[in-house]
Amino acid sequence: MTPTDAPGHDVTTTLDFLLQEVDGLRTRWVAPRRLRVDLPAETLPALLELLKGRAGYVHLSAISCVDWPDDGQFELVYHTWSYELNVLVMAHIRIPRDPGVYLSIYDLYRPAAFFERDIHEMFGLWFEGSPDMGKFILTEWEGPPPMRKEFDGEAWVMEQFGWQEYRPEWLTEIEAKGGGISKRPEQLRGDKGEDGTA
């Protein structure tokens, strides 16, 4: 594999050729340096191993998790970058929301430890084989995983903290002249059980 300056024709064909070795892939070039790969969850380790071993994909840029409650699925996106090909491969997999368990890729990529721990905290997914799934950011948090779609952060805040009404004199003056805030916050929130502590 020779280093290349720009993703020329040969790089794209190399990658496309290489990815034929894994079954069940759907690949799509979404931008000149962005290759999107959709694949079934069980083939992801094989794909990453292939990319890391044969195409120089040593850099795991991020693991993103997307919640799709309507489909009952979590989408995991593995963004990997090759310092030789200078192309980003985004591998999309979907896993069922319940029980929400997947394999850790820590043995392939060390940075996965941070991202998997983060996803575990924020979404409640469990990664088999990840070195440390202890709490890191939300050590004082006892509620549900906050990034799940069913967790309504605003309602939680309203219940926990209460609302302080803020009506300074200058606002009253403006309102007397017919100006001011056209839509009050409680109207925007649809009067969600909220009683203002003035």
Partner: peptide, 15 residues
């Protein structure tokens, strides 16, 4: 003072 732009945030104390 009142939570500022993070008034919606589950993680910050407001006042």
């Amino acid at each position: 003072v009142n939570g500022g732009m993070y008034w919606q945030s589950y993680a910050t104390a407001k006042k």
